[in-house]
Amino acid sequence: MPLGYYLALSAVMFVIGIVGVLVRRNALIVFMSLELMFNAANLLFVTFAAYYGTIIGQISVFFVMTVAAAEVAVGLALMVAIFRTKHSIDVDQMSSLKG
């Protein structure tokens, strides 16, 4: 199995994630697109760990997941707090910094 297949799959996932962030207004789905991009990166880590025959890539994935979990916890809490004041999770509604 050529290495390139995994890399290409990872790239596709990553770009779909980016497009998701760009086109969706629902903050929750934007968040999920972010998770998808994390996954693309993780897949890259694991692929190269197998390619080089080391364990470091897997360790990195472990840390990424932990930090992602923490990020999700804080991010969702933020979203709840914003919803309380704005009564919406439309990211386009959060434009008070307009120049």
């Binding site: 199995m1 050529p2 290495l3 390139g4 995994y6 890399l7 197998a50 390619y51 025959g53």
Partner: peptide, 10 residues
């Protein structure tokens, strides 16, 4: 990378 194979995992 399209031609380099992933070695079988130990």
């Amino acid at each position: 990378y399209m031609t380099t194979p992933v070695p079988p995992a130990a």
